[in-house]
Design a protein around this nucleic acid. Sequence first.
DNA 1: CTTTTTGCCTACCGCATGGTAGGCAGATGC
DNA 2: GCATCTGCCTACCATGCGGTAGGCAAAAAG
Lengths: 225, 225
Amino acid sequence: MAKTNKKQEEPSVRERILAEAMHLVASKGYEATSIQAIADAVGIRKQSLLYHFPSKENLHECLIEQLVARWNDVLPKVMLAATNSRGRFEAVMRTVVEFFAENPDRARLLLREVLDRPEEMRRVMMLHSQVWSSALRNYIQDGQELGSVDPGLDPEAYILHILTIILSGLATFSTMSVVLEQGTSTGRGETELERYVDEMMRIAQASLFVKRSSQSRPENEESVS
Amino acid sequence: MAKTNKKQEEPSVRERILAEAMHLVASKGYEATSIQAIADAVGIRKQSLLYHFPSKENLHECLIEQLVARWNDVLPKVMLAATNSRGRFEAVMRTVVEFFAENPDRARLLLREVLDRPEEMRRVMMLHSQVWSSALRNYIQDGQELGSVDPGLDPEAYILHILTIILSGLATFSTMSVVLEQGTSTGRGETELERYVDEMMRIAQASLFVKRSSQSRPENEESVS
DNA sequence: CTTTTTGCCTACCGCATGGTAGGCAGATGC
DNA sequence: GCATCTGCCTACCATGCGGTAGGCAAAAAG
């Protein structure tokens, strides 16, 4: 009876608007994307779009809301994997990576949000980051006490950098990957993205754990310590 | 006698425009920054700005040009430090980091450029990246043959990730650092930025070199291998 | 002194933008 | 059958945008 009585399985106009807006805003930025352009992409008139989203700013809010909602769907899966075992780290990180790799627009949108609305993002970070930040910090600090994690590591800073490398790495991959193309030194039959992500994971792990001998197997399998 | 007869040591109007434009575009993005706003910041009329820069797009080009020029000033210093010794890696990376840390607007502008103009940036990358990319790759590959560098490391991908962590890390630092604030686990009397950069350097080194025992001295001194 | 050039200005223009007002067909409720 | 609500539409508007035309004082050139 309210205004938001939508079923979850229709490819409704509203959802199509959100999808197109997501892509356009992620590609060109919020200011550079007119609601006219979004409406054109959907195939409706501008005023029809304004029926679903009373203002451009409202559309933007819903866009972020949707992204956060999707993230909250993944979060429990991530946290579940975050136990103390060594191989689990890869699982956690890969889950986060896959979230953004599945749709790089997510990373680009979020990165733009950080650049364009620093104050708002700072608020969001302070509210939402403590949940997983403290959990990860504890995980890392436990590892430090056990001796499996580099004692010189700064937990919060490390987490931040890994977050950055994932977010920005996937946001900029399509542009930056030209460096990989001209190198072409991959022996294995990997996608460039796979190659990119593998090295990302290797860096995160090599800089987290104390090394043994020659680590960093490119396989998904965990080589037990 | 031409139109660009400017001396290098005047705080000319043109330079003030470039400075304000740099900051505004880095903060809000190119599309979101009107030339009116830039003129206001400088303290002149919009049309006076258009006298120095015939169009907004031209101003933008000059902005990038200026940034590239500054980078080219630093580049030789970087390449000079890029020899084979182990401690030199830190010197090279720290030089790059300082370039962006000195004025984070550089990082933000460049990151925005990657997001907003992927095609152009791809061209620029292909033209300019080979110079240092191949040099660094050789340096790394030499290290791999000597056994000082992780053999599982993917040189191009590694370089790309380190570049990302520096660029995006410094571009987003002011926003993301709230995570550091709420942690406050620093024993030493460091700035948050120093702490952030130190961990950045530690990650880069720990994921590059094969470890010995407890590495990553926060000091600037090189502990010889 | 006169002419040209430089640097900044006022005045104005065409255009795309985000947003309002209101119409209108079809589905729904009574 | 009639009223209401939903979803999309056409028509219109005020605003701010990037950019053009041209004036005008001071400096430079002859």
